[in-house]
């Protein structure tokens, strides 16, 4: 089965895709960023760098290897993580307050081995893989990110879902003391942030729980210490800083659908033919591409280009209806 899924041979390491010199200079970027942060009275880049530890994964045949990887600086400074503020620069500025050790993940619902797991126990002995995936945001921009993670399926098998489990629901941490977006009068969403997948989506080999990127532990602003990555769905489905995984028999509520059911659906598969009510989804801007102000939009691909692997999951479904 895996052989069928091979699309591109994994013979190029991300360090070769972006020029090696740039990759090796990534700490300078961070250092420069830290300096900029210090000028502004903040030191997020510095702290991020101090926290980062090597986190290598074996190359995977499921990686997308024919596209330029988005620079680390962009991946770590342009984030939607409303728990740390709604501006895309906010998470990089504010997420250093998040404490990710110790980290518990509650596994409950229709499972045989439900428990409050220490993160290390939940993922222990599951081989880390590097997965280079396109990430398409519902706002019309995209990146290519070298994640390090494990198949969600491996974790689910470990906790033994019961036969009646049809969906997997996820929740993000709620800790206002460490998450500035969860304090004050203007809170973007009701917390906790919630998302979910159908069981077959959750078990799909492309679906991973990521614990790092660019060969290092996950930066806080990208959803440390553990986050979901579902590359054929809009980015908001890839829930960050997960503290709860529940197996359910009913379709779980997801935050964006609760916030605005007219604009967001449970599936949220990348689909250039179905526009977001407020903007077109036909094209996207690839972050880091082009120079300065001159970036040409590129066409958005059905299922974000992963149709060969995932289209069969939705056979017979009207994707204009099941958004």
């Amino acid at each position: 089965m895996v052989a069928m899924l091979i699309k591109h041979r994994p013979d190029i390491a991300p360090s070769e895709i972006i020029s090696r010199s740039v990759y090796l200079r990534r700490r300078e970027f961070l250092a420069g960023f830290a300096a900029a942060g210090l000028v502004a009275g903040l030191s997020p880049g510095f702290l991020r760098d101090a926290q980062a530890a090597p986190m290598k994964g074996a190359p995977s045949p499921l990686s997308t290897t024919d596209e330029t990887v988005t620079p680390l600086r962009d991946v770590t400074t342009y984030n939607n993580f409303y728990e740390f503020g709604t501006d895309k620069g906010d998470p990089a500025k504010n997420a250093h307050t998040l404490k990710t050790t110790p980290w518990k993940v509650k596994v409950d619902g229709l499972v045989n081995k439900g428990a409050d797991y220490d993160l290390e126990d939940l993922i222990r002995d599951i081989a880390l893989e590097e997965r280079i995936y396109r990430m398409r945001c519902v706002e019309g921009w995209s990146m290519v990110i070298p994640w390090v993670g494990i198949p969600l399926a491996s974790v689910l098998k470990r906790v033994e879902p019961q036969g009646s489990a049809k969906f997997v629901a996820f929740e993000t941490l709620v800790r206002p003391a460490e998450m500035v977006g969860q304090r004050g009068y203007f809170q973007a969403l009701p917390w906790p942030y919630k998302d979910g997948l159908r069981m077959d989506e959750a078990m799909h080999p492309l679906t991973i729980l990521a614990v790092g990127l660019y060969g290092e532990t996950m930066p806080n602003q990208n959803g440390a210490p553990i986050r979901l990555v579902v590359p054929w769905k809009y980015g908001f489905k890839s829930i960050k800083s997960i503290v709860r995984i529940s197996l359910t028999d009913a379709q779980p509520a997801i935050s964006w659908q609760e916030q605005n059911a007219r604009e967001y659906g449970f599936y949220s598969n990348v689909n250039p033919q179905v526009d977001h009510p407020r903007w077109s989804q036909a094209t996207e801007r690839r972050i880091g591409e082009g120079s300065g102000l001159f970036v040409r939009r590129r066409p958005t691909l059905m299922f974000n280009g992963y149709g060969d692997q995932v289209a069969s999951l939705y056979a017979g479904m009207d994707l204009k209806k099941f958004i």
Partner: peptide, 17 residues
Amino acid sequence: FYLGLTDQLGADPQNTL
């Protein structure tokens, strides 16, 4: 415009501008 033309407007310069 100066920041944009010298690539100093962050990850998504068009949108920021």
